Computed example of a mutant assay.
Amino acid sequence: MSIVVNTTTPEGIILAADSRQSYRNMKGMARVGSENAVKLFQINSRIGAGIAGLAFLVENGVPKNLSQFIEEFKHEDGVEDMEVEEVVQGLYHLFNRKYNWEDQLNDLEASIGNDLQSKGLKIINVQRKDNQVHFTFQNPQGIVEEINAGLDIIEVLVAGFNRDGSHQVFSCRIPGQVQKLRDSYQIDKQYGSSWIGQGDVITRIVLGFDGRIVNLDFVKDALGTLGEAEVQRQLQGMEYNIQWGTMTLQDAVDFATLMIHTTSAIQRFSDGINADPGDMPGVGGPIDVAVITPDHGFVWLKKKKLNFEDVEVDLDRCPYI
Results as ranks from 00 to 15, higher is better:
S2K: 01
T8P: 04
G12D: 07
A16E: 01
A16W: 02
A17P: 05
A17N: 02
R20H: 06
Q21H: 10
N25R: 01
K27S: 11
V38M: 04
L40G: 06
I43L: 07
N44G: 07
S45F: 06
S45D: 07
A55N: 08
V58E: 13
K64P: 06
K64L: 10
Q68T: 15
F69R: 02
E71H: 14
F73K: 00
K74P: 13
H75D: 09
E76M: 14
D77N: 10
V79G: 05
E86L: 10
V88Q: 00
Y92S: 12
I112D: 01
G120S: 07
N125S: 13
Q127F: 11
Q127T: 12
K129M: 10
K129C: 04
F137C: 00
Q141D: 13
D164M: 10
F170T: 08
R173G: 12
S184G: 15
S184I: 04
Q190A: 14
I196S: 03
V201F: 03
I202Q: 08
N215Q: 09
K220I: 08
T225W: 11
Q232H: 12
Y240D: 08
Q243N: 15
T246W: 07
T246I: 12
Q250M: 13
T262F: 07
T262E: 05
T263A: 10
G272C: 04
G272F: 03
G272V: 03
A275Y: 06
P281L: 00
G282I: 02
G282V: 05
V283Q: 05
D288H: 05
A290R: 01
P294N: 02
H296E: 13
F298R: 01
L301R: 06
K304N: 14
K305E: 13
